[in-house]
Design a protein around this nucleic acid. Sequence first.
DNA 1: TTCACAGTTCATTCTCTGATGAACTATGAA
DNA 2: TTCATAGTTCATCAGAGAATGAACTGTGAA
Lengths: 227, 227
Amino acid sequence: MDMKELERVAALIGDPSRVKILWALLDGRAYTATELSIFADLSRPNISMHLSKLTDADILKVSCQGRHRYYSYSRMEVAYAIEAMGALVPAPELKKNVTLRNDPVSYCRSCYDHLAGKVGVAITDQLIKKDYLKSFPDRFEITPAGIIFFERIGIDTRLFNSQKRTIAKPCLDWTERRFHLAGSLGSSLLQKLLKEDLMRRTENSRALQITFKGKKELFEQLGLEFN
Amino acid sequence: MDMKELERVAALIGDPSRVKILWALLDGRAYTATELSIFADLSRPNISMHLSKLTDADILKVSCQGRHRYYSYSRMEVAYAIEAMGALVPAPELKKNVTLRNDPVSYCRSCYDHLAGKVGVAITDQLIKKDYLKSFPDRFEITPAGIIFFERIGIDTRLFNSQKRTIAKPCLDWTERRFHLAGSLGSSLLQKLLKEDLMRRTENSRALQITFKGKKELFEQLGLEFN
DNA sequence: TTCACAGTTCATTCTCTGATGAACTATGAA
DNA sequence: TTCATAGTTCATCAGAGAATGAACTGTGAA
C-alpha cells in the first residue's frame, strides 16, 4: 500500500463538506453542482472546488449535459467506503420512548445502484428460499427456475449472461448486517421496480417508498408481507 | 443519519497522521503509543493527541498494562471502514515489468482478527468444497462433518456454539473481491494457525508467512497446494 | 443579440487544528 | 530513593487549505 496515496484519499473523503457531498450521492444518482451546493449548504465556488478535487482523484465522475454538469461516484468502491464510514457513526441516543421502528431509510433504501435496507435483504432472502437464486460465498447464481422467474417479471437474464461482469454479488448492508443483491441483476431489479412504479424514489433521500401496487406485487411474486 | 456525527467521524479518520495509525492497526494487534509513533514517524506528544481523539470517539480502545498502553480498534466496523478506504487507493502504475505477483501482503495477510488475502479465500473455498462449511448469503454454517474436522485440528466449535455472536460470517476481502472467513470461527482459526506455527506474523506488516510445516498441513488437511 | 443561469477561476482572507518542546505523572527497575 | 522510560498535558506556533466575493466562460432561451 502506498501510504502517501492512502493519506491523500483519506484527506479527500475526510473533509466535512466533502463527506456531505459524498453522502448525498450514496443513492447512486447524479446531481448537479447547484443541487449539491443547496444540499450541503455551501457556496457555489466552494462546492465547485470540492467537486473538482474529488473528480481529479477519480472519486467522482462528471457527465456534462448542456450547461449542467452531473456528478456521481466514479466507481462502486466509493459507495462501499462511504457506507462503511457511516457504520462508524455511533447509534443515536435512544432518547425517551421515541420509536425508530419503521425508519424509512433503514427500512427500504437504495444503495448506489441497487436495493438495500430491510426490504432489500428480505427480497434477497425470498429469492433464495424460492430457489430462484443460489448463494455462494462470493456470489449469487441464478437457477433455471430463477431465469424463468426473472423472465416473467420482465428481466431478461440472457442480456447479462453474455457480459463478463458479475451478475449478482452479495453486498454488505450496513444497517441490516446482512446481504442483499448487488451486481447487474440487483441493478436491473431496482430499475424494474422503479419503472413499474412498485417503488418510488424520494427527494434528496435514499429512502424508497413502496407503492400499493408494489406491496401487492411483492406479496404475489415473493410472498413478502408488509404490516 | 446525523450529519454532524458523520462529519466528525470523517474528519477523525481523514487525517493523514491518523490514517497511518489506523492502517498500522489493521492487522488486529494492539500497539503501544511509542510503537505507533515510530511507525507513523510522529512525535510522542503528537501521537498521544491523535490517539486520545480516536479513543474519545470510540474508534480505538486502550488496554493498560503497567506503564504500557495498548491501542487497538474498538470494534470490527473500524476495520471494515479502513479496508474500504484502502480499496479507493488507485492501483499503482504498472511500471516496467515489475511483477507484483506474489506480493506477500495481498497473498496472505491478516485482516483485523482473521485470515485474509488469496490464502484466506482459498482456505474458505476448500472448507466449503469439503463440506465442512455451508455458505449462506449472510453467514456460514458449520456442518456436522465440519464440527468433526475442526475438532480434529483442535478447534472446539462447541465453545462458541453457546455464544450469541456470529460463529462464521463472510467478510469482503478487498484485494481478492471474494469472501473469507470472519467471526469467531475465523478468529479461532487464525489463532490456531499462529499458535501451531503454521503461519507467522511479520514485523509491522499484515503479511503472514506460511511456514514449511504450514504448507504441509494445509495440503494434508485441505488439499491446498503452494507453488 | 441579449439576458439569465450554471458553473468555474482567481486572489485573498481566515480559521482550524496539527505539530512542537517543556514540564508533568506514573510505572518499573536498580 | 533514585533513575529511566512510557505516556500525557499544556501553551504556543505555524501552515495548510477551506471559504469568500468578484470576475469570467459557456450554454440555452427569448
